[in-house]
Design a protein around this nucleic acid. Structure first.
Lengths: 202, 202
DNA sequence: CAAAACGGAATGAACGTTCATTCCACTACT
DNA sequence: AGTAGTGGAATGAACGTTCATTCCGTTTTG
């Protein structure tokens, strides 16, 4: 009927299915780990056939890599909302930490997927590339930590340790909230992030 | 000749094989995760037949549970060496944190096994039991944290969060050392543990 | 004291299941 | 009618587990 739809409709359909597959895979991996997310189940939950997945992703490894990338594309805009480079370093740390906790509380599946990801060979390789500087180092966090070190408001410790001191507790607390071991509220979040800051400040 | 040997010799042989299986399983799981440690490989590395494992452990789940128990039995004596309940709370925190880091650095396979364990359903269930008080709460760490809270030298935060604030960075730093992202020395360890303490103290 | 018989420990081939991936008949559009 | 897209059965590799058999130290027998 409409001649103009010929190029658009197929593209839209493709994107829809791709997104459904990503969503289904994220849910299953977050809930049951990599082992509890066979391709057949992902296909079922996405409402597509098992073979269809391979039209969008070369294999399971590629699918998982795309999931990670997709997550970063949703996480970064969120934590950068209201982030201003002209704030004090302390204010920026508190902003990022709070935003990170909020995001994980609002998107527990994303947290649990990340947890699975970084505790697998995928994540270790990914981090190795990043730390050893193979990839671009202009990460928001890297920039902020580097600035804190040069301005001497942060402890004189290697960057990697500062990262651990700041993100270690944040991720642990997020995990315990998501697992139901504790109920975080605004006040608790504020005080937790403040404690993380105290750990790294000079 | 010696009548008494009849009961002892078989027992010694049995213990040896059991230990070999535990060691092989720990190594493989630490190096390649639960998925990269099939029973056949564990048997190979232990120098026993595949079926032999099932003479000592009912199934893989039980084997993994025993591995965790075995690890705690080796870890606790180590971190409690030189630990005195009459020291200040701060001194005791520094002692335990330092001992923990030292242990993980000296026994990276144990760290990596624990990492795998706590990021699996086994570990989550285990922690749920512990936190919800199903098990005995007279853990060294629990006692110390509780004392710190009642004596008001620790921040007024829920125990679970204090745990996260203290162990989160420690485990993150241990991980990065073991993965080779940083080379910890005595000085770095001392300052890292001190930073962890600063995060939880009032 | 030698030799035969015994019994539990050890074995690894085999089994059933589950997984990622492939393949091809079928659909739905133009 | 032709073609790109789709679903789900088919495939083979890999897994945990089982079990008939072997092995070996001890005991019993002659």
């Amino acid at each position: 009927m409409n001649v103009h739809s010929t190029t658009q409709v197929p593209k839209m359909i493709k994107l829809d299915k791709r997104d459904e597959i990503l969503r289904a895979a994220r849910e299953l991996i977050a809930e049951h780990g990599f082992h509890g997310a066979p391709m057949a189940l992902i296909a079922d939950r996405a409402g597509v056939g098992a073979g269809t997945i391979y039209r969008y992703f070369e294999n399971k490894d590629v699918l998982i890599g795309q999931l990670h990338q997709n997550l970063e594309e949703r996480l970064y805009p969120h934590i950068l909302t209201g982030y201003a480079a002209d704030q004090t370093i302390r204010a920026r740390f508190l902003h990022l930490g709070t935003a990170l906790l909020h995001y994980f509380i609002a998107n527990p599946l994303d947290y649990r997927f990340l947890q699975q990801f970084y505790n697998s060979p995928y994540g270790v390789d990914h981090r190795r590339d990043k730390i050893l500087g193979v990839k671009d180092g202009n990460d928001v966090f890297c920039v902020l930590f580097a600035e804190g070190v040069t301005q001497q408001v942060l402890k004189d410790l290697p960057m990697v340790i500062l990262f651990g001191l700041y993100f270690g507790p944040l991720l642990a607390v997020a995990r315990d909230h998501i697992l139901g071991f504790i109920q975080l509220d605004e006040d608790l979040i504020t005080r937790t992030v403040a404690a993380c800051w105290e750990g790294i400040q000079k």
